[in-house]
Amino acid sequence: MAAVANAPAPAPAGPPDVAVEHLTHVYETANGAVKALDDIDFEVPQGKFVGIVGPSGCGKSSLLLMLAGLLQPSEGRIVVREHALTAPRPADVGVVFQEASLLPWKTALENVEFPLKLRGTARAERRDRALELLELVGLADFRDRLPHELSGGMRQRVSIARGFSQDPKILLMDEPFAALDEQTRLTLGDELLKIWTRHQKTVIFVTHSLTEAVYLCDEVLVMSHRPGRIIDRVTIPLERPRTYEMMATETFGHLRERIWRSIRTT
């Protein structure tokens, strides 16, 4: 790869995978209206890994729910792969939720199989696929455990495996590594990058870890306090594949600091 540091990302070939236009969301609650998102505008080209960072409560999870078609925006619209999004489209968009929303009566394996079962994949095939993914997240030995028998981090990993098994073109991830130790975090981050490269997925990744954001992403969107607006977009020009050594470089440090300053000024 003829990587030139800080070279702009190559111009996207086709139309963006995700286009968010003037998106605003207001929650109507018993205590009045809460404006969670205010006039959000961004595009994610096909195959990009885009991070979203911002203070707690700024509307990141709400944004992902809307991108998944699970929450109707108050204003504005979302276009996914050239079609306006009005309802969930599981083949296009999949979600790894912030709280592992595993079904408590299903084993780890059955949970990972669930998206495949819903679309009628044959039993043997979905079992193989799910086992492979459990192996990937290091939980093959826990295939027959129920969620309440797993630790928080393990549940999160099952949830990630479930997101992969759905195999959507666009994967939305809401702080998927938040409950994990540093080492597992890095390993899973690398696995995620491998899957992303291999399967040409588009990833939108919410995180609180700036190091993780810089390490994984092509671009990082910085959101302001509630109501969330996008106040900065930081392109990460580090070459791929990313390596741990890059974390020690000056460029990495600069990028991290640039994002940190953006968040602080909100």
Binding site: P90, V95, F97, S101
Partner: peptide
Amino acid sequence: DPAFVRAARSMGATRAQ
């Protein structure tokens, strides 16, 4: 828990499912 329903919907579950 509505989170279960939300997750299933995002995975493409029909109303019957």
